[in-house]
Computed example of a mutant assay.
Amino acid sequence: MTLDRKGKALLVLALVTVVAMAFRVSWNALRDVARAIGADDTAATLYPVVVDGLMALALVATLVLVGPDRTFALRVLGTYTLASLVLNYVHGLVPGLHGDSVDWGRLADWDPANYALVLLATSLPVGAIYFGSDLVAKILDHRPAPAPEPMPEPAEPASVPVAGRSMPVPVEPATDVPVLGPWTPVAELTGGTGGTGTGTGPDLYIPAEQDGTGLGAEPTPEPPEPSVVPPVPDPGSGTTGSGSEVRDDTVFGRQVGEVRNWLREEPELTGTAIGTRLGTSDAYGRRVRRAALHTAGAAV
């Protein structure tokens, strides 16, 4: 239970009241003991204030100090409380202390007890000076401990890549590439190297997907080709005519692969333009174009 400010004030007031009443009860006993050890009237009147006053000071120091200083204040409080209890007990056992019938310096009939009681009663004022000064110095030098700072929350550990484990690499979406639409295959010409005079006519009809109107263009009929196919020139060697059929097929297949790549980038490329790039006739260019389109359709 936590007391509020008003509750703490009432608690302190109750403590002061109890201490004051206890001080008044102990007053007569300590005053008579002081007279028995030779104190005059003024000293005997102040003697209870010295003893019980130091007890009150030690109580305050116990509430303020911490650690070893608090332990020291508790020891002082316990020692003076026990001494006051003994003197009050002697005052109750010796009726002569209540008046002037007791000899000066005589607190007990047994000499050792008398010597001890006189030593105790005379040492309390001197001890009050020493212990009281020490307790006041400790209270003035006391500094409250600073409030502990809140501990920061531990940060989450950063993820560390594990050695030997490859991190996923983001894959960019493939860009749109031109795709050849459906087409009608035309039988390859069996011979002839002659071509059109101008080479401007289309070789095949344009697929409907690639025509802007969506209707498609009608194929233009091919001019008749001669029945004799001349030898295919080899672009790499510069020789013509005398190579074997295997060599011709190899060159033709390589040229078909190149034209297929050209058509992927330029679908509108005509046979005339292909023949120009290959350094051959228009008819040969159309033949290679048809073969490239045919192989592209078969691959799809």
Results as ranks from 00 to 15, higher is better:
T198V: 01
G132L: 06
F131D: 10
P112I: 00
A121G: 03
A155K: 09
H91N: 07
V118S: 07
E156R: 10
P144K: 10
G132R: 02
V186T: 14
A121P: 04
V179H: 04
P154W: 02
E153N: 00
M167I: 12
D203W: 03
G132P: 02
A108K: 00
L180G: 02
P207L: 05
A128E: 02
L180Q: 08
K138W: 00
V118Q: 03
Y130M: 06
G201R: 04
D103K: 10
R143M: 06
G201D: 11
P144L: 13
K138R: 15
G164Q: 08
P154Q: 09
G199V: 08
W110V: 12
V102H: 00
P202N: 01
P202I: 00
A147Y: 00
A147D: 01
G96K: 09
V118G: 04
D103S: 13
N88G: 08
Q210A: 15
G191R: 01
V179S: 07
A187K: 14
L117G: 02
G105N: 14
P152F: 13
V177C: 06
K138T: 00
S101M: 12
A137L: 14
V169M: 15
P157A: 10
H91Y: 15
S123A: 12
A128I: 05
A137F: 12
I129Y: 11
H91S: 02
P182Q: 11
N88F: 05
L180I: 07
Y115P: 03
G199M: 09
D141M: 13
G195C: 03
L97M: 06
P148S: 15
P173V: 13
W110F: 14
R106N: 02
P185W: 13
A137D: 13
V86D: 03
E188T: 08
R143Q: 08
L180N: 01
A187L: 14
G96M: 07
P168S: 10
E209V: 13
G181K: 05
R106P: 02
S101A: 15
S123N: 10
Y130P: 04
P202F: 05
L119K: 08
D211W: 06
